[in-house]
């Protein structure tokens, strides 16, 4: 999984990124640089623009103004598409078996034949999904589907993984499994960018926190600083659980 040999996509640079929709500015002009390593949590109350920012980073949405640039030596249009993955709040599974979902993602990226089968099996095994590999993906439980989504992302060997509140719809056991998976990715050298509004989760997983309020980047700090010594009034209120949602 290590990309040590190949030049990296990262860092990712956002300059003056703005997003407007019908006269409403959902994201104020924002500058951001994501370095090669680490686990970044994007936090903030509902409607702060966390998902929007993530989708712009991942390339699912085009900003109204500003630029998004993969500044690493290894960034080409081809690798930019391939070497990033995203796990959504509600995983979208195709109407086929769990294993076939993983193989599909690989085949889209041009991985075929025995290589495709091997990598899919490996991913299924890595996330402990062997028992449900042949089950139709869409009848799996929410937690199983999310683990499958992680396995699918892992099979693609991304350099950076975006996760949009991946645990918000799950029960505690499933949440633990997903957090475990995040650590797995990290151990494999994958850059993690994750949205959450679970303070405990952020403390457990994050290296650093990016804090958004009303489409504005209010604070960016190492995780301990953010929770122990918030610099802004909003962050302090948020950490205290007092910020109105």
């Amino acid at each position: 999984m290590s990309q040590a040999a190949t030049p990296s996509l990262l860092p990712l640079e956002l300059r003056g990124v703005t997003f407007r929709h019908r006269d409403q500015t959902l994201l104020q002009p924002l500058d951001l640089r994501l370095e090669r390593d680490g686990k970044t949590m994007i936090m903030g109350p509902n409607g702060a623009g966390k998902s929007l920012l993530m989708r712009i980073c991942h390339g699912l949405l085009q900003p109204t103004a500003g630029s998004v640039r993969w500044a690493g030596a290894g960034a080409t249009p081809e690798t930019v598409r391939r070497r990033q993955a995203m796990v959504f709040q509600r995983p979208v599974m195709l109407r086929r078996s769990a294993l076939a979902n993983v193989r599909y993602a690989l085949s889209v990226q041009g991985v075929a034949g025995s290589e495709c089968r091997r990598r899919a099996d490996e991913a299924i095994e890595h996330f402990g999904l062997q028992a449900i590999a042949q089950r139709p993906a869409r009848v799996l439980s929410g937690g199983e589907q999310q683990r499958l989504a992680l396995a699918r992302a892992w099979a693609l060997r991304p350099e950076i993984l975006f996760m949009d509140e991946p645990t918000s719809a799950l029960d505690p056991a499933a949440i633990r499994a997903v957090e475990e998976a995040v650590r797995t990715f990290h151990a494999d050298g994958v850059r993690i960018v994750m949205n959450t509004h679970d303070l405990g989760q952020a403390r457990r997983l994050a290296d650093e926190v990016i804090f958004l309020v009303n489409g504005r980047l209010v604070e960016r700090a190492p995780v301990d600083d953010f929770f122990e010594r918030p610099r802004t009034r909003e962050a302090a209120a948020f950490v205290q659980g007092e910020l109105v949602w």
Partner: peptide, 23 residues
């Protein structure tokens, strides 16, 4: 329902047609 996930996987629209028809 599928658009973001498929785009995220790098599925082109042309490639999405058979996928969607099958699903």
């Amino acid at each position: 329902e599928y658009r973001e996930q498929l785009q995220s996987l790098g599925v082109t629209r042309l490639r999405a047609i058979p996928t969607l028809l099958w699903d």
